[in-house]
């Protein structure tokens, strides 16, 4: 970019750096706890899911795939919702950390979506009789996966990182309409994927012996996400400072 733009970017970027020190302090405080919780919850969840819980009366031991598949689905949706919120906050309030956080967590969301899709196929083949169907639930989750990948590609395609993040924010907000579609797909349309088991009021559809490992794994994945979000946002902040310093060197 031209020299005046470069100076303007530098000024604005330097101004932003008042905030990150606070984030760094918070991150340093929380990280050991979230990391420790992740390890503990994963250990407990794996034990409960693989050893200490019963097989299902109709699905047998394949039900243990649920303890990976469902929490990763929840995280895939949760992370995207966070990205949408961050994009909105970045757009309206121009908070410096919002866009960086959004960019930081996108690969984690993509990872969880991939795990959800793959474990879903591994579960569907023995139980339904197929690896994949184009029903509303599966198709909309696949679209979510493409949204994550599209976002990552988009923000990396720009020379100017700030413009890249702005474009990415727009993509995330446009795609947010997919979230209610995913959630309600099994209610709105005839699908092969069965309706929700956990959100039913009244008679619960999940036996407590299976609900427990599910919730522990969900908590484990959440702790894992917090850990990675902190690590990756910190890395994004460092990256921005590196870019600023490199530009300062280049301009001198």
């Amino acid at each position: 970019m031209a020299l005046p733009d470069r100076m303007a970017y530098l000024t604005v970027a330097m101004h932003r750096f008042a905030n990150p020190a606070r984030f760094q302090r918070i991150a340093t405080a929380i990280l050991p706890w979230s990391a420790g919780l992740t390890v503990l919850l994963l250990a407990a969840g794996l034990y409960l899911g693989l050893v200490a819980s019963p097989a299902d009366y109709q699905q047998g031991d394949t039900v243990r795939i649920m303890y990976i598949h469902v929490p990763s689905a929840w995280m895939a949706l949760f992370i995207y919702a966070n990205m949408a919120l961050a994009s909105a906050v970045g757009f309206v309030w121009r908070h410096p950390l919002a866009d960086l956080f959004c960019r930081a967590v996108a690969p984690v969301g993509a990872g969880f979506t991939a795990v959800c899709l793959i474990t879903g196929s591994l579960w569907g083949e023995p139980m339904w009789g197929t690896w994949w169907v184009w029903d509303a639930r599966l198709t909309s989750v696949l679209i979510l996966f493409f949204l994550y990948l599209g976002y990552i590609a988009l923000v990396n395609a720009f020379d100017d990182p700030v413009r890249g993040l702005k474009a990415g924010a727009i993509l995330v907000l446009v795609g947010v309409v997919n979230l209610p579609i995913i959630k309600f797909s099994v209610d709105w349309w005839n699908t092969l994927h069965q309706p929700a088991s956990v959100s039913r009021l009244g008679r619960p559809a999940l036996d407590p012996a299976m609900l427990t490992p599910l919730m522990v794994m969900a908590a484990a994945f959440m702790a894992y996400f917090v850990t990675l979000a902190l690590l990756r946002t910190r890395a994004e902040l460092l990256n921005r400072r590196i870019q600023v310093l490199q530009m300062a060197r280049g301009a001198s």
Binding site: M127, W128, Q194, A205, D207, M210
Partner: peptide
């Protein structure tokens, strides 16, 4: 197509 109920045998 199975339903959303899960329980031990």
């Amino acid at each position: 197509k199975h339903d959303e109920t899960y329980m031990p045998r």
